[in-house]
């Protein structure tokens, strides 16, 4: 009794502290006007220099594109490591999935989900989003396949070799776009200086190499995340087949 009373008091205090933070947050809702430092330069001149109205995408894929290549290679390395760790497990049984209502309902949503993810990737240079976010939504769609319809269905729909192909070709595409800059003599991963057409600011065809880099990163992230999830699920199923005491249907 006293323990539950203590828990309630602690929870109440925690809620009060959280509410105080929310209160301060709502009071401070006015957008700040003063911007100093390098941020001012980026906000003023990013749209003219790169042709992309999404300033975050401009910074991510133009000003610090080399770092983005490094981040993408981190995902690639982790996917390789996880796939090698779990390579021994064999795919034996298929899971049954959730109930029929969820199956049919999700099958109505999935086409819109795929189109939305593609839109996030392709519109990365004019509206919020980009390769990483769109790839995460794509990976969510494949995880929903695996959860809702069972892992056998996902293995039939998208083969693991196809995923590896997509991921490797995404990495290759990123590096090739970078090499175009080297061949024209403007430096690795140069954007406008390497001769990519800038286009009109705010249009769909603009931003030079930024949409192409978005597509490459999107392919990489989506295939990589779904490969990670699928290998872990395969490991779990392997452990079930090893212990026959577990009741399975």
């Amino acid at each position: 009794m006293s323990k539950s009373c203590f828990l309630r008091i602690v929870t109440f205090l925690l809620c009060l502290a959280l509410g105080w933070q929310f209160w301060k947050g709502i009071l401070a809702l006015e957008p700040t006007q003063i911007i100093i430092g390098p941020a001012a330069h980026y906000i003023e001149s990013a749209a003219e220099e790169t042709g992309a109205t999404n300033i975050v995408a401009a910074i991510l894929f133009d000003y610090r594109a080399l770092d983005t290549l490094g981040e993408a290679s981190v995902i690639y390395t982790s996917v390789c490591g996880i796939a090698m760790l779990f390579a021994k497990s064999k795919f034996k049984i298929s899971s049954t999935g959730l109930s029929f209502i969820v199956k049919r309902g999700v099958s109505f949503i999935i086409p819109f989900l795929l189109l939305y993810a593609a839109g996030i990737v392709l519109m990365g240079h004019i509206s919020p989003g980009g390769g990483f976010q769109g790839g995460a939504v794509f990976a969510t769609a494949t995880i929903l396949f695996c959860i809702v319809y069972g892992s056998g269905f996902e293995a039939v729909m998208i083969k693991p070799k196809t995923k590896e192909l997509i991921e490797s070709s995404g990495a290759l595409m990123f590096v090739l776009i970078g090499f175009v800059g080297l061949w024209t003599g403007a430096g690795f991963l140069a954007n406008i200086a390497a001769g990519y057409p800038k286009g009109e600011v705010g249009r769909f065809l603009s931003g030079g190499s930024i949409p192409l880099l978005n597509i490459a990163v999107g392919m990489k992230v989506s295939a990589g995340l779904s490969t990670i999830f699928y290998s872990m699920i395969k490991l779990l199923e392997f452990e079930v087949t090893k212990h026959p005491g577990v009741k399975n249907k």
Binding site: Y116, G119, R203, F204
Partner: peptide, 10 residues
């Protein structure tokens, strides 16, 4: 749906 959420009429 595409036209609605991208809203680029080009």
């Amino acid at each position: 749906f595409w036209v609605l959420f991208t809203w680029k009429l080009e």
